[in-house]
């Protein structure tokens, strides 16, 4: 195509004065609307668009953020066998560092306490006067009550049960009230 032809067919721009008037009229209309306390149609549409964009961005962001929390956590089983009840000495605490629990036996009564400090998760060490946490100095009695330091609550007591093959099972995900002891025939 001849470039000069295209130039001739281009619509002529409206005169500047006319355009200015149109702009002026739109502006006055908007002012009038505003004076009446109404939003102009143009503002309404553009604000709807902004809201929509905001919603879309928020939705995408939320779905992306959801990725960082998996539905299944890679945890080892929190119920584990610790041996036959008869293996535990009565009147003594048996520490099972691999499982981070202490097993207590008093005759036929068994109970187990976590060894994980309730303050910030360090492993407590046993002493003559109870459990001591090396990280921030929490001090627990032998039955897990807080004697001092920053620990917010007692060491957890876990549910115990007996497996079909007569092994003691600690359920380190089922907390029982402090002082709950379980009776098993040995």
């Amino acid at each position: 195509m001849n470039p000069s032809d295209e130039k001739n067919h281009r619509p002529k721009p409206r005169p500047l004065v006319e355009r200015a008037d149109a702009h002026e009229i739109a502006r006055r209309q908007a002012e009038e609307e505003e004076r009446r306390g109404r939003m102009s149609r143009r503002d309404f549409v553009s604000q709807c668009g902004a809201c929509l964009a905001g919603v879309v961005v928020a939705a995408v962001g939320a779905s992306a953020a959801r990725v960082i929390k998996p539905d299944v956590l890679p945890e080892p089983s929190l119920s584990f066998k610790v041996g036959s009840p008869s293996e535990f000495t009565s009147g003594e605490a048996t520490l099972l560092p691999d499982n981070q629990v202490a097993i207590f036996r008093d005759g036929e009564e068994f109970w187990s306490l976590t060894q994980v400090c309730t303050h910030l998760g360090c492993i407590v060490a046993v002493g003559p006067d109870g459990f001591h946490c090396p990280c921030h100095g929490s001090h627990f009695s032998m039955d897990g009550r807080v004697l001092g330091g920053p620990a917010p609550r007692p060491l957890q007591w876990w549910k115990l049960s007996l497996s079909p093959d007569c092994q003691l099972v600690v359920h380190a995900d089922q907390e029982v009230p402090v002082g709950t002891k379980f009776k098993f025939e040995t």
Binding site: D98, P134, H136, G137, G149, P150
Partner: peptide, 26 residues
């Protein structure tokens, strides 16, 4: 994972924080 150091200390710039954490974690 079985035995923390005793004392278990963070690098120096967090020990101020560790000091107040030793009053209350939150």
């Amino acid at each position: 994972p079985l035995i923390p150091e005793n004392p278990a200390k963070a690098p120096w710039y967090f020990l101020g924080l560790q000091e107040i954490v030793a009053y209350s974690a939150f």
